[in-house]
Design a protein around this nucleic acid. Sequence first.
DNA 1: ACCCAGGGCGTTG
DNA 2: CAACGCCATGGG
Length: 229
Amino acid sequence: MKAEKDPGWAQTEPQIPLYEIYQALRRAFGHQHWWPAETAEEVIVGAVLAQNVAWENASRAIRALKEKQLLSLAALHETDATVIAPLIRPSRFYNQKAQRLKNLSDLLMDRFQGSLEAMLAADLSLLRKELMNLSGFGNETVDSILLYAAQKPVFVIDAYTRRIFSRLALIPPDWSYRACQQYFMDRLPADLDLYQDFHAQIVCLGSRICKKKNPLCSYCPLIRWCKKK
DNA sequence: ACCCAGGGCGTTG
DNA sequence: CAACGCCATGGG
């Protein structure tokens, strides 16, 4: 048993199997069918625009791009950042995000001959490395692209995941992104639909708690379910 | 007038 | 390497 390797922490382990938590959430909220986008390109652009902003505002920015026929990496590549920025204003940090979209379109052109299919079909670790090299693309944004655009079973960790699962005492609050991701992937089968919907369920739950006023209780079916075990 | 949202980066000590 | 400031909108 390797449990005795981790000091202190191991004693509070194992509690609720992750898959049962997923099922409880899914029973409560239903299958979410994420990511809310029509095309892979829309997923990718959305992943950038959704950084640290309410989805509703990111969605407005996407609509604005769509209306100007700019919701494609090829079109964005031909458009100046000073033109893109005002369109995506509702998504917050719009100057940075305009540049980030340019960075991504440059990668697509320079390394994948402008073929999105080629990029998304690339070797997983290569693609991850290429995306992570882009300024403005960190762990969560890249993994969201891998999971929802490239359809790779990569588990996404976001702020909600950390908050919820550390409050459930399943992971320490200060674990690195990679450590958290490893925790989930070690305990769940590498199933695309499971990874996609589990993350969606977490966001669904997280977006209706996590305020100071709602300290992860009351209308949280997951916690009720956990407590009666 | 607050608070915060599906991050990421650069700069400090 | 942790902690923090920065980016800089819109809804509750």
